[in-house]
Write a protein that binds this DNA or RNA. Sequence first.
DNA 1: GCTTTAAGGGAG
DNA 2: CATCGCTCCCTTAAAGC
Length: 1208
Amino acid sequence: MNNKHVASSQTPCTNETGEEYEASEFCGFKDYLRRKKIKLQNQDEQDRRDLNQDLPKVFEGCVIYANGYMKPSASNLRQMVLKYGGVWKQYLEGKTSITHIVATLLTPSKRVEFAKYKVVKPEWIVESVQAQRLLPWTDYRTIEDVPGQALLQFIGGGSQISQRKSNIDSYKSGSIRKLKPLTLSNSQISKGDEKSRFRSTTKSSKVSRPRLTIGDALLENQRPKTPIHFMKPLKFSLSAPINIQGPVIPTKGLSQKNNIDVKDPKMQFSMAHSCAQDDSPVRVVTSQTIEEKIDANPLYDTIKQPLSKEEKEILNAIPVVCSLDQVQGILTSEIVRPQPDIALPDTRNLYLTSIIDSNLNSFNESVSSAFNEPIVHNTSCQLLAQSTNLFIETRNPEPQEPQRFRPLTAEQHNSDLLADPSIRKSTTVDPNFLKSYFGHSRLHHLSTWKADLKLKMQQFTSMNKRLSKNPDPQSPRFIMHIDFDCFFASISLLARPELVDTPVCVGHGGVMMGEIASCNYKARAFGVKNGMWMKEALKLCPQLTCLPYDFPRYEEASRIFYGILIPVSAGTLQAVSVDEALLDVTSCVKGPDYQDSIDTLARRIRDEIREKTSCEVSIGIGSNILLAKMALKKAKPAGQYQLQPQEVDDFLAGFEVTNLPGVGLSIAKRLENELNVKSIGQLRAIKEEELKRIFGIKTSEKLYRMARGIDASEVGEVSVRKTVSIEVNWGVRFENKEQVGDFMFNLAGELQKRMVNLGYSGRQLTLKVMRRALDAPLDPPKHLGHGLCDSFNKSILLGFSTNDHEILAREVQGLLRGFGIPPGELRGVAVQMGKLEPVGSKTESRDQRRLEFPEAETHLNIKTDTPLAVLHSLKERIHPPSKAFHTPIQRQANPSSTPRTQFEIPTQIDPSVFKDLPEDLQTEILRIQRNKELQYSINRKGIAVLPSPSQIDPNVLNVLPSSLKKELETAYASRSYSNLLKSPHKPFAPSIIRNSPTRKNSPTRKRTITIPTSKPKLFTLTQAKYFRGQDNDKSSFPSFSPSDGFDRDILAELPKDIRQEIIEQAQRQRIAAKRKKERAEAVVPKQIPIYKNHPKLTLPSGPTIATFQKLSDLSDLRQLIDEWFLDCKEDGPHMEDIHAFASYINEVIKTEKNLSKAESVIRWFLDVVGTGEGSLEWRNAIDVIIAEIRNVCKERGIGMLQFNYETV
DNA sequence: GCTTTAAGGGAG
DNA sequence: CATCGCTCCCTTAAAGC
Ligand SMILES: Nc1ccn([C@H]2C[C@H](O)[C@@H](COP(=O)(O)OP(=O)(O)OP(=O)(O)O)O2)c(=O)n1
């Protein structure tokens, strides 16, 4: 220790407790880092003392942080800053104290992240020093350097933050109206007309353009709320066709008619200027009429003139959104003198610019009187709230002062709305919402039925497929597409026979904004279409009758429908929907008059269905699925049509491209705008290269082929479910965060139910939320609908597979909080689980005996994780990798955030300490508490879901009170926590793997105790039915060598189960290694190709070959397959084994890249299994495996493997 | 190079 | 009263590695 150090120990930088030098027996990394930080600051302080004698304090009050590489190096700049009285921040910490950021170049995301900071070029420092005074930073903006960078923030209200727009005019026959994305660039906006806008959009879509990631969007929401500078000019984003003509409207411009040319009266005029993004500390959203706005605020004094109707309409659509920052920004930024290179054309700066230009003074006054005080108050309030709570609620200014301007928050608005009990009960705040909602939702029924039928038909098909052999794949095929005519309408009409000859539709009673699910052909004659809004339809057809839904009858009709088709199908039947199926009837026809026999068959089917359901189906017949579908178009209604091969080209040419499957509004528009293509005939004239200019590769190729009637897909292709999800985008109205929490909990519960019923757990969780668009009215056109929204996605990887609703709920809440959306602004929520793994015995393949519509609701198969996994997730929550999800570590207790009542506060934890913890931390702790008694489970892969000690964020530990630390220590079942920390970070897999930045740790992360292979999932088998404990010797307690990487003391402290598992794993590992070695010695390793270049194969753990049950040798594998089949011949293979086997093959293809090996293994498998003795389950297994392999081949872009399997 | 992510799109 | 805008899959651009 030198003098310097001693001196620095007295600096004010040492915090109150003198922490830097306090001895700590609990040496977490967090402590270390903190001390290091403090030390650095002290260093700075010292440097400053040493250096700044007699020098002007040029940078006094400046706290500067350097980002990225820059010309005078950061350390040089630091010297300068310190020398001249500034503070240098090495770490970005909370960013709150930073006044300036030095950067030469900013990545797009950084641009967003730093959008509200003074981001300056290094020259600012250099030249300020030269000038010996602080030069205006505005002359050194980094952000102006990159042309168009500011633009990014204004495009369509947020670039890639998709802005969805309700468009009641846009629907496509047979599909629901899609919300339209909006991405407007500067120049596009000015065009004003939809077509040109669209064209520009598409063009730019091929240009590589940085996008705003969700993280960026989150940052927008999580920006620190301290005074910061606003650097963007005010702009308006237009979210609907609008044409604003003329130059900047002068002061009184708003009263001048004809300056605004509103093409669409329903248009939404967004005045979302840049800083009105919802990240603003306080959003003051008013629902007052514009007159009130004007009356209430001197800001509007000069425009107190009669407004035209359109003007009022426009202005009322404008939520007045303002904040201190914005006000500051408005007053200090260059708005008054817009930067030409980034400002939008004058026409779009019209409103506020003009006001500000001419009314700066009155504006200023209004700011202090109406905004300033309350906002300051709310800023701190919200900072507090945000730091502890799920949401920031939008708040009103405090009412203590006479308010001339009383805006309404989204929450208040919802409160008013929900005050009506009849409304309240159909919103998400009602505890029975989900049940009631899904019970009434046609799309929910449709989706559920579809998934169910798809699965069942798949099973049925695989059961029979091999009976009907198709020896000549070249011979022509006959595909039938069978579909009820206006299904819902037809069925619902059965109860109202008197209306048969009148236009009817099916929908929810209302006459206003309800959607039409289906309408009969009488109604279609008027132009009414499925998915259209009632209001619209009534305009077209005033005498339209609306019939109620009758879901049970639809279901019953469907059951009959499939009941008729199944016997006919002779094995190959694919469910398209509840009322729609594909049939490969190739094998049904023989002889020279085959075409007639097909037609006869079709007629027979139609007759039978008509007889049994009293409804008509139509049938299209073609030589592939695409052509059958196109033929069906012609067949409808109540008809059939067989498309002859020779007429295909002419037949297709006349259809509009939207009739092609996969071509919806968006693609059709692009085709039309870019290529002037409307019909399939026109599409056929376009070269594939041309298409690739506009669309991606896959889409281009598909379009190209479809235009020529080519479709290689086959009826009954097996697909494996990839996701299970739930979403609600209607009735979503919340008053506070508690309601949100409750709802998410219920949602997770429902999702769990679905997963359990399907027999899945999942590793990936995705949250999708819809937030009311800034410029959308608080009440959308559709009652309780979502209206115009911005949508956000975020997915995380859990380190374990689960379907436990509590875990799901918690993770969802964490994600949701990351978005920082005020409860009142939420309009839609979706939770999706991916990276599925089958769980328990009830797998999809086991359901095959029942073909009825099941309503079974079991509560089996819930996969809980270990408490430690949750601990790990807790860590991630508090100290997430992405700043976007950053929550301040020091959090204040929020009086309103009490723990859920169903959670007991554990006695071991000091209740007051516990209460001071953030809500989610509380629940995590509670989980740990509750689960402590439970078995420490091992996840399916045989990896203990104990987070690696090295992965426990010391920050987390440090922030916990000592009593909690103790709890965690207990949870770790270790007396010596520091031992764990010090032990090699080998043994455990992390339990939570967050996306992106976390992955930087992947080298560490990948080190698990599993047997070294390319992927742990290969070992799914170890716990499955057949393979359980294959080469385990459970009785022995092996001795560990140091090279095992285990600390024996730690091992001894672990729960028995985990210890056992680790031991077993280690054993297997050794055995595997031994085997490998033996094999390598005994056999010439020609069977073991080594692909040095593949990254997967350079894992530190060594082996480079995918293994299956530790085998990679072909003969061993064959033997294993033999044994597997023999053992499970009767009962069928375990689903997990099937997947494991498929995974292995995929691994061989993907990683080992040994196609011939994969082929021969598969061939062997098929030979063994396909000997005719195989049960249904085994045939199913074949399909699943083949399907998975097909996927991988597709992924790899290689052709399908060859192994004499006729359906392949 | 590869894989993963967020987002768009489509169907029924 | 209104109203019940789901759920799965695929593709793409960009980011991460
Ligand atoms: N946007 C949509 C589209 C369809 N459906 C429901 C109602 C339909 O009856 C059923 C089947 O959809 P189809 O596309 O097959 O349409 P229809 O059977 O009503 O008419 P078509 O005769 O054109 O098949 O799905 C819906 O609720 N909303």
